[in-house]
Amino acid sequence: MEITRRDFLKVSLSTVFLAGLGLELEKTKAYASELKVKGAKETTTICPFCSVGCGIIVYTKEGKVVNTEGDPDHPINEGSLCPKGASLFQIANNPYRVTKPLYRAPGTANWREVSWDWALNRIARLVKKTRDRTFLRKNAQGQTVNRTEAIAHVGSAALDNEECYLIQKFMRALGLVYIENQARL
């Protein structure tokens, strides 16, 4: 990915310049000991909230997001962002994210952590069981329908296009007809 942004070229140039300002920087060091984007990797992304499609740059250092801000070269937002977009940093640095698969057994009152393997195998088993029991080859009129009405899918309006495509491909291959996303809300 080639990025050429005037604004950010200045950063790398000015890191040299900054060295000469040690004294002034020293004064505010509680908040600004060093430009935190210095030496960070820049990755362009598109905001995950509304549908305007604003460009954001994610700055990472050692696998951690250290800063996020508007992409100044993006023609729609030209570097600006709303408060949601400006908070992207907190999606990456977020204590509440679920980081392991969870399972809640029937009749129990708690989540428990499970392995991916176990969860995926169990889901595959349940999908097959429900599908096999409810799959309809033909309707009452004898017309071929090849569907199950006992499994439903909703969501995906925040996934990537490629994932959306895979979801519809996968769900339709299973025979689902209840396939919906947020567009209908």
């Binding site: 890191t15 300002l21 801000e69 937002n77 962002l81």
Partner: peptide, 18 residues
Amino acid sequence: FERIRAGLTPACAKTCPT
């Protein structure tokens, strides 16, 4: 301050949508 010294716009001004 440090953004200005680095040739950048202050964070509030940079992000302002309008």
